[in-house]
Write a protein that binds this DNA or RNA. Sequence first.
DNA 1: AGAGACGTTTTC
DNA 2: GAAAACGTCTCT
Length: 163
Amino acid sequence: MVYFWCVCLISSGECLKLSVIMFKPRGMSGQPLEDIYEFPMDPEEVQSVHLHRKSLETTSPLSKYIESEHQQAGLYSLPDLNCPLDSSTDLQKKRRSKCRKCPPCLRKQNCGSCTNCQNRRTGKQICKMRKCDELKRKRNEYEEREVWIYFTCPILVKVVTYR
DNA sequence: AGAGACGTTTTC
DNA sequence: GAAAACGTCTCT
């Protein structure tokens, strides 16, 4: 099952909006082709998105596929993309970071009693009570890629494939 | 399969 | 630059 989540920064005159667009490849049944949620952003958030974009400027082989899906769905048109073939393997190797949103991530204090706490110096592992729920999942249980692609506005695409 | 060790990467 | 902690390898 593959879903595409697009975070899309839209500037129209004085109005800045952040849209979250969810859609799936054509031919898959069960879900609507697209759901669009829009909500306003303040200038600080817009700046934050721009900064985030700068630090993540990469392209992916998926971009071509996404481009094709978008065009078939009549959603966007894309400029030419330069997609290095090995970028997805690079992303697979990249060390994951905690989500910062799940209950373990929000916990501020180590329990002090688990083996990871007791063995902090040599174990170098986070307290078991604080271990991020996302990081607990093995990487081969799902595949996640996050890339910026270039439409008429910058779009962050997060692709999650569950097996 | 789970625990421990440690190199390496990421965060502060 | 130091501390935190992820990923992976080895051992049991």
